[in-house]
């Protein structure tokens, strides 16, 4: 039993870590900007494409293979620097204060554009570059083999969660962000440059999505359609946790991972459905997610 379940659980947790990055980005964007970015999954796949291409270049040019590690992070940063401010300032900013329908449609339009751009730039073949994973090797505990890279992913996700808490609590920018989330009108009245905060939060969201994608390339590679698939999974995780709730997203990622392990073990055909079934069950019991709260209207 352990021999079968332990690697599955590791797989699922490593997967949860990757999804956590994306869901975290989605939920962060939502909590600061109050918009649901349908193109968020595209930044995951673009991050993956850029990281895989960079990795293939490093290996192909015969450079030090350990360079693939910084290149994973730099790829995500490059994607965020390119798309974050651009998209926020041109498209997203225009939808503030308009209905959700407009926001969702605007980002859906962006999603369609990014889908084709990826195909044009990176082609339709899947890319796979596993140097970072191969470099780290494996660990054997009790007759079960674990990939060290997966352990790293889980540690990185945990670190990111803690890191963001520290950023929000102990830096000036973080505290300003917190004020903007808590009360937008008050923060504007206080003279906080909310526009800058929105750009920053959106870019950070793009970075987290792209980072998830970049970190995923050594284990799963990247192929067309990845963005659309990731999008719904990130939605599900963010919704289970409660939109805008970072800890909720972390817990939800673990729950979804566990559900998938159970599904693979007991009912393999339900593997793909598991996240959405969990989402439906959770939202039936707690409509606004595990950590979410409903807004009450004053009349």
């Amino acid at each position: 039993m352990l021999q079968t379940v332990a690697p599955l659980l590791m797989d699922a947790l490593a997967n949860a870590a990757l999804i956590f990055f994306v869901a975290f980005g989605l939920t962060l964007t939502f909590s600061v900007l109050r918009i649901l970015n349908v193109a968020h999954g595209s930044f995951y796949s673009i991050g993956a494409y850029v990281a895989a291409s960079a990795g293939l270049f490093i290996v192909g040019a015969g450079l030090n293979p350990w360079l693939t590690y910084p290149s994973l992070i730099l790829s995500a940063a490059a994607v965020a620097a390119l798309f974050g401010p651009l998209v926020e300032k041109t498209l997203v900013r225009w939808t503030y204060g308009r209905g959700e329908a407009v926001q969702i449609l605007m980002t859906f339009g962006l999603f369609l554009i990014l889908e084709d751009l990826q195909r044009m730039v990176f082609g339709v073949n899947s890319l796979y570059e596993d140097t970072p994973m191969a470099l780290l090797g494996i660990t054997e505990i009790g007759g079960v083999v674990y990939l060290n890279y997966q352990i790293l992913l889980i540690a990185l996700a945990a670190l990111t969660l803690v890191g963001l808490r520290i950023f929000i609590r102990h830096t000036r920018t973080g505290r300003l962000l917190h004020v903007v989330v808590a009360d937008r009108e008050v923060s504007e009245a206080m003279g906080i440059d909310t526009g800058r905060m929105f750009t920053l939060a959106f870019t950070l969201g793009v970075f987290l999505a792209a980072l998830g994608g970049a970190l995923a390339t050594p284990t799963t590679g990247v192929a067309p359609g990845l963005g659309a698939e990731t999008m719904v999974l990130a939605f599900a995780v963010a919704a289970i946790g409660g939109l805008g709730q970072v800890e909720g997203a972390a817990l939800a990622a673990v729950i979804v991972a566990a559900a998938r392990v159970l599904a693979i073990y007991f009912a393999p055909e339900l593997d793909a459905v598991a996240p959405y079934l969990v989402m439906l069950v959770v939202l039936l019991v707690r409509p606004y997610g595990l950590f979410g709260k409903a807004a009450v209207r004053r009349i």
Binding site: F30, L36, E100, I104, V232, F235, A236, A239, L243, E269, L270, A272, V273, Y276, L277, M279, L280, L283, P287, Y288
Partner: peptide, 24 residues
């Protein structure tokens, strides 16, 4: 019973269950 983003997302979730069932 839901509005706004929650309505959009829940419809999405149900449709993905249907999608997965169709494939499986």
């Amino acid at each position: 019973r839901y509005r706004a983003i929650f309505f959009a997302m829940l419809n999405l979730a149900v449709s993905m269950v249907i999608y997965a069932l169709c494939s499986k």
